[in-house]
Every structure is written in structure tokens, then in C-alpha cells.
Computed example of a mutant assay.
Amino acid sequence: MKPAQMDRTPFADLDSQPSEMTAMLLAALEAMGRHPEIRRVRETAWQALRPRPGERLLDAGSGAGDVARWLATKVGPAGEVVALDYSAATIAAAVQRHDGSNVRYMTGDVSAMNLPAGSFDGVWCERVLQHVDDADAALAELIRVTRPGGRLCLVDTDWESLAFDGVPARLAATIVADMHGRLTPRQRDMGRTLRRRLIRARLSDVTATPVTCVFGDPASAAVVLPMVNPMVPEAAWTTPPGVRDEWFSYVDAAGARGDFLAILTIWVVTGTVG
């Protein structure tokens, strides 16, 4: 999994980062996975995927493996979960966190996986497609490795849904526009395009559920939204001089008053492979 980020480069190419940065990014992944709003998104996705005992599942873009290990509790000892991530450092961290469950960890590219066709009963892919160059090519690979009748569960962000209240609208618009400038249009709206992509790929029983994440204070928002996190290095910001400090002064003031609000929609989309 790739988390929300101010600059997608460190997360998209984690193996090239200094060890201190890698450790920080992995800690961010784990904190995000514990956040109540992200857990709410995942609960929606788990209910949609419906993992069953004995199934073989793929977690494509598995991060530190927390979802893969949860899936392993559902498929039981007769099943298996393959946790695949592009980053060798992330897979190494996942192996260190392994709890003895039936999970196999491997590095790989979701757009070109070294896995047999039709070898999985289901696939989970969370907040990955927004980072790849060709989401439809990656989707074709996920479909290829899923058996007929198997289920795909895709989870991704609609960054264009991001909105704030309690801070000046013109300043929030500047911050959001800065983040949007770092992402291509297909990456900004990935979440809401997933239903269309599955329909065009001729999957059946397609369902699409928007989950609006609500962050009522800056500390909560900072776990998921890097533009609210003062720990994100100043060098990562590309806003004009002074804008970052002005932004955080308003964010802090809104937090102190209790009227800060940030909202972001993440989509859960499933379909059955024919």
C-alpha cells in the first residue's frame, strides 16, 4: 500500500530513500493503518471481498503486511495469502513483523507480476493504482492472476474530494492546488474511476462504495493528510515562501477553537472476474 503524501516520490520509490527516511515512511504507513477512518475504509472493503477459509488471496501493494496478516486469519491454515510489494525495504519490514500466519511475502510490480494466471481466489489492492503509470495495465494484471469467479477488491482515493473548513478558503485552495499539481489527473481522481475501469474490463457484480473520511482535528488529519502534518519536511513543500507557515498558523488556530475539519473520500470497488 502507498499512503497519502505531499510528494509521491519517496513512497513510490522507497528503496532509494536513506534508511532514516525509510523508517519514517514505514512508521507513517503503520500509523495510517491504525487510524479509525482508515480502519473504517478497510472494514467496508473486507465485507465486500468476503474472504473465506481455504482461499488463496493476493494483497497487491501490501506495505508492511498488516492487511495480508488479517486476511490470513480469514482464510485459515488451509488457505494462503501472498503479500506483494514493489519495495524490497517494505517487504523486509513486513517479514520482520510476521506473526506466523500463512502469509508469503514477495517483491514484485503490480503491472508485471511473476505469478501464474488464475492462481488466486481474490485480490486486495489498496491505494496503489493512484501511483502507477498505467492503472488499466495494472488492473489487467490483477485480473489475469484471478481465477474465473474470483473477486477483485480495489481501494483508492479521490483526491479531488479533499476539502477543509475552519481555515481560510483561499489558503486551503492554494494548499490543495499545490498537491494536485504533483499528481496527474488520473491519479487525482483514481478512486471514483475504479467502477468504470472494472465495467470496461467486463467484470460482473461490480459494486462501488464511497467512504468519506472525516477528520475533526489537525492531529487526526495529520496521520493521513501530509499537508496537515508539520513533521513533513519544509523542503517537500513547493508553495510560495511563507504560505506553509501561514497555513499551519490557521490550522493550529482552528484546532484550538475546535472547528477544524478535513474530509476525503476513499472508494471501495469490487467485481467478479468472468
Score class of each variant (00 low, 15 high):
residue 40 R to L: 12
residue 266 I to R: 01
residue 251 V to Y: 06
residue 81 V to F: 02
residue 193 T to H: 09
residue 69 R to A: 02
residue 42 R to F: 07
residue 264 L to I: 01
residue 147 R to N: 10
residue 180 H to L: 08
residue 111 S to G: 11
residue 74 K to A: 14
residue 203 L to N: 00
residue 247 W to G: 10
residue 197 R to Q: 14
residue 254 A to T: 02
residue 245 D to R: 13
residue 163 A to I: 00
residue 199 I to F: 13
residue 229 N to C: 08
residue 50 R to I: 13
residue 175 I to K: 06
residue 184 T to L: 12
residue 137 A to H: 10
residue 80 E to K: 14
residue 224 V to E: 05
residue 21 M to C: 11
residue 30 E to H: 07
residue 71 L to M: 15
residue 153 C to R: 01
residue 17 Q to G: 07
residue 107 T to E: 08
residue 272 T to W: 04
residue 214 V to C: 14
residue 64 A to E: 12
residue 250 Y to D: 03
residue 48 A to C: 03
residue 134 D to L: 09
residue 253 A to L: 13
residue 207 T to H: 14
residue 222 A to Y: 14
residue 81 V to K: 02
residue 124 W to S: 06
residue 224 V to K: 05
residue 79 G to I: 03
residue 271 G to Q: 02
residue 69 R to F: 05
residue 103 V to G: 05
residue 40 R to A: 13
residue 138 A to W: 12
residue 222 A to S: 15
residue 102 N to G: 11
residue 270 T to P: 02
residue 256 A to Y: 03
residue 154 L to C: 04
residue 64 A to V: 13
residue 160 E to M: 15
residue 103 V to F: 11
residue 23 A to F: 02
residue 179 M to C: 06
residue 222 A to G: 13
residue 155 V to Q: 07
residue 150 G to N: 07
residue 137 A to Y: 04
residue 76 G to A: 10
residue 82 V to D: 03
residue 232 V to A: 14
residue 7 D to C: 10
residue 174 T to C: 11
residue 183 L to V: 00
residue 106 M to K: 06
